[in-house]
C-alpha cells in the first residue's frame, strides 16, 4: 500500500508545533495587515494629491509582485540595513505588508460603497468628522468589509507555507523535513494538504455565518 495509515498517524504529533507556528504567523500577520491597511487606506484618501497617488502606487506594486520575492527581499535586504529580525518575524512582516495592500483596497471599497447621501446627511446634521466616520459610515461599511477581510485571512493562512522558503518551521517545512529524513513524502505532504483543507473550509464556513449575521443585523 502506498499510503500507510499507521505511519501517517505516527508522524501526526510532529505537526503540532508547526501548526502552532502557522497559526501564530497568520494571526500576527493579519493584525499587521489590518492596521497597516487602514493607514494605507487613509493615506489613499488624503487630500494632498501626491500622497494619495504615491500610496496608490505602493499598494499596486505590493499587490502585483510575488509574496515569495517580497519575503526574500525582506529576509536578505533587511539585515544589510542593520535590522536583525528572526526568520519568523521577517516572514510575518512580509505577510502583513503584502496583505495590508489588499486590506487597504477592502477598506476603500467599503467606504466608497456607503452612498454619498449618508455623508451629506451627516454634514447637514452638523456631525463632526470623527463622529460621522464612527457612527454613520463605519457601521454601514462593516457588513461589506468583514467578509472580504475574512477571505484574505484565509488566503494569508494558505500563504504561510511560503515561510518555509526562509527556514521557518511551519507545516510544509515540517513535512519536507520528515520527507527528507524518511524518504516518505506521501503521508507527510498529504497530511499538510488535509490540514489546510480542513482549516480553510472551517474558516470559510465561519465567514459565511458571520456574513449572514451582519446582513440580518442590517436588514
Amino acid at each position: 500500500m502506498i499510503f500507510d495509515w499507521n505511519y501517517a498517524l505516527g508522524i501526526l504529533p510532529q505537526f503540532a508545533p508547526a501548526l502552532w507556528i502557522t497559526l501564530q504567523a497568520t494571526a500576527a500577520g493579519m493584525l499587521l495587515a489590518l492596521t497597516l491597511g487602514l493607514v494605507l487606506a487613509l493615506l489613499r484618501r488624503c487630500d494632498v494629491a501626491w500622497v494619495s497617488w504615491l500610496t496608490a502606487g505602493v499598494i499596486e506594486f505590493v499587490r502585483s509582485t510575488p509574496l515569495l520575492v517580497q519575503i526574500y527581499f525582506l529576509f536578505y535586504v533587511l539585515p544589510e540595513t542593520g535590522m536583525r529580525l528572526s526568520a519568523f518575524a521577517t516572514g510575518t512582516l512580509a505577510l502583513g505588508v503584502h496583505y495590508a495592500a489588499y486590506c487597504a483596497e477592502v477598506y476603500r471599497a467599503g467606504l466608497d460603497a456607503v452612498p454619498r447621501g449618508q455623508w451629506d446627511a451627516a454634514a447637514a446634521l452638523n456631525l463632526g468628522p470623527l463622529r460621522t466616520l464612527w457612527r454613520i459610515i463605519v457601521p454601514q461599511a462593516v457588513a461589506r468589509v468583514v467578509p472580504a477581510l475574512g477571505n484574505y485571512l484565509v488566503a494569508m493562512f494558505k500563504d504561510t507555507p511560503l515561510l518555509s522558503a526562509i527556514t521557518v518551521v511551519e507545516l510544509l517545512q515540517t513535512a519536507k523535513m520528515i520527507g527528507a529524513e524518511s524518504f516518505r513524502y506521501v503521508e507527510a505532504l498529504t497530511l499538510v494538504g488535509v490540514f489546510f483543507l480542513l482549516l480553510s473550509l472551517g474558516a470559510a464556513a465561519l465567514i459565511r455565518v458571520v456574513e449572514g449575521r451582519l446582513q440580518v443585523a442590517h436588514a
Binding site: A121, L127, G128
Partner: peptide, 28 residues
C-alpha cells in the same frame, strides 16, 4: 443654523427612527 431634508431621505439605515432623530441632538 441650517437643516436640510433630502430627496432620497438619506436616513441612516443601521439606526431606527428614534436613533436617527436622536443622533445629532446628542452628539452636536
Amino acid at each position: 443654523k441650517v437643516g436640510m431634508v433630502f430627496q432620497h431621505f438619506n436616513l441612516f439605515p443601521h439606526m431606527n427612527a428614534l436613533q436617527n432623530v436622536m443622533e445629532a441632538p446628542v452628539s452636536v
